[in-house]
Design a protein around this nucleic acid. Structure first.
Lengths: 332, 332
DNA sequence: ACCTGTTATGTTACACGTAACATTTAATGG
DNA sequence: CCATTAAATGTTACGTGTAACATAACAGGT
């Protein structure tokens, strides 16, 4: 069972009886070779099971038609939807995507970016606006367009596409206050930049109304049961709590579960609001109040902008704000 | 703003005043060059922001220390956890992962595999045991080890790691029947192989007990609200339904939501069971009856087996069954 | 038959890091 | 201080597809 080397263009060429250049042309555009040559080459390629080799085109400085996508987490549903948006665009434009994640760690992000760049990707979509100095240097050196998604903070690199997390949570909490809730607590997990922005929006709304800011936070990564736990802890520490604003839907749903366990009536005794507008918020009873974020659109627009810039277009808008929507549901 | 070519080893070498070979040695193992050379090279590398280039090592038939992971879907939480398991192992072993997904389409799977193979990955982890003929040919040609995850069907390629979906659903449905439920309906979405195996397990259990098999199925991809919809439709079509077995937790949770909306008491009037054992099933009220699948372990073991085989070990077990656990919760 | 222009194929050189071997420099022992 | 060995660096060749240019084949018009 000797390990055969995998076939090269030359191997295909030998079968057909031409030079590998002809095979190369056929693979890039079949119409470039004569009709009977097309069938002969097709057969040989099929017979050998030829697999293209990207190495040479990486050696030359040709475009790779691959772009890198870097998300902090795959367990977070948000990014699955953003990725879907990105790929809806890249698929049509003939770009392949290389996906990586880094568990909210700057150092891991750097490592992943180095990995992706080592494959000469044509562009890069990041999910944060905070990077190590080395990351910034690498990206500058690579000289490829970069997009930072998710928030509309002024981009650390070139261009950002997202929504205003601060404004969104400010509006949501203001609405809760308008509904008459006074002792609203902020529930947060996984303290990334966006979580912090949302907390600041919460604080602004509370302070504007002369209310006290309280929070229940953890570094643990978000989950439904964590939401339940945080609510339980909140009720112990702040017994007069009449509302919680959660940094995402998962926590909010878990909080609702805990209220149901403790027979706390929503929204009469307790208001609960989340962030993102995932499907479960619509499915559940009561329907969850939440900020609906344009996740798929963020992906689509990011990919469009990136590809436009790969094609040489200048940046027309450094910051693209795709907005959000407040959905009241039945939980506030 | 002339586009600078990105720096090569030669550029680093020119700064330091040595040949690129010395730089290459340093990058692979700093101890291989003299002490003062180490600092000089480190500075130059930092200054240029040198990014490694994988092309040459792809050209030579060297190992790439990258493996490919192919999952049908990223929105499906199951795979996020499997991937976490895989990467826990690959990270330690010094392998990079290239992740791709294909939306349950054989053709897209083929395309993704071609893409991954074109980067000379050292091994491949797939999530299905059904592939196009061309896919099989390519994999054979590539001559790299392949693992098929998720179920314990006899592997289409070489080795499979997973659990017995058929037995699991058979046991769960049997348990529901033992609890006294008779008119149990199977709720399914996204008709992939594992969904079908689960349905067959359901049917076996029902038939063994002389009960009638009924199902409510759709090709739409799974979601919480789809679970609610399916339950609603089930109650219209089969009004005497007293239990539903769902192909996954999402559908089951949605079904519970719908029961809550319609004031159907769980488990007194309706039994509901899911599949996988996701966090939400523990968080929610009532706690969901479900089959707990070893998702992360499937990932870990798959990666271990793959790496062992990349290192030349022979296959010791063609099929590795990692078992499952029935968790009753409060919903049956 | 001859020229023109088009189409199809061939030739050459190149991109970049590394294995294998060659050479230089430094270090140790007598 | 020379001989021998070890350490550090240099040299050469290689792998694979493609751009750019070169050549061959062929059609159509006169």
């Amino acid at each position: 069972m000797a390990k055969k080397k995998r076939p090269t263009l030359q191997d295909v060429a030998n079968i057909v009886g031409v030079t590998k250049m002809t095979i190369s042309r056929y693979l890039r555009d079949p119409a470039k070779v004569s009709a009977d040559m097309q069938t002969k080459i097709a057969e040989a390629v099929e017979e050998l099971g030829y697999i293209p080799n990207r190495a040479p085109e990486l050696l030359s400085n040709a475009k790779s038609h691959a772009i890198g996508i870097l998300v902090p987490s795959l367990t977070n549903q948000v990014f699955a939807e953003v990725i879907r948006g990105i790929e809806a665009v890249t698929e049509k434009a003939g770009y392949q995507t290389m996906l990586a994640h880094y568990g909210y760690s700057d150092e891991l992000e750097e490592e992943r970016i180095r990995f992706l760049l080592s494959y000469h990707i044509d562009g890069l979509i990041l999910s944060e606006s905070q990077h190590t100095p080395r990351t910034l240097k690498m990206i500058e050196t690579a000289g490829i367009p970069v997009i930072e998604m998710m928030d509309v903070v002024s981009p650390a690199i070139e261009q950002s596409v997202g929504m205003d997390n601060f404004a969104a949570s400010y509006q949501m909490v203001s609405k809760m206050i308008k509904h008459g809730y006074k002792n609203i607590v902020y529930l947060g997990a996984r303290l990334d930049v966006r979580t912090q922005l949302r907390q600041q929006g919460y604080e602004k709304a509370m302070q504007e109304n002369g209310l006290l800011c309280k929070s229940m936070m953890t570094e643990t990564s978000s989950s439904f049961s964590l939401g339940a736990t945080l609510l339980k802890q909140t009720l112990v520490k702040y017994p007069d709590t009449d509302g919680v604003f959660c940094t995402n839907d998962d926590l909010a749903v878990g909080a609702i579960h805990e209220c149901q366990r403790q027979n706390i009536k929503i929204p009469q005794q307790m208001a609960i609001a989340g962030f993102h507008g995932h499907d479960i918020g619509i499915s559940m009873v009561p329907r969850l109040a939440t900020v609906v974020t344009p996740r798929e659109k963020i992906g689509r627009v990011s990919a469009q902008q990136l590809i436009a810039r790969i094609d040489g277009q200048e940046i027309d808008q450094k910051v693209i704000d795709l907005g959000f929507e407040i959905r009241c549901g039945d939980s506030i």
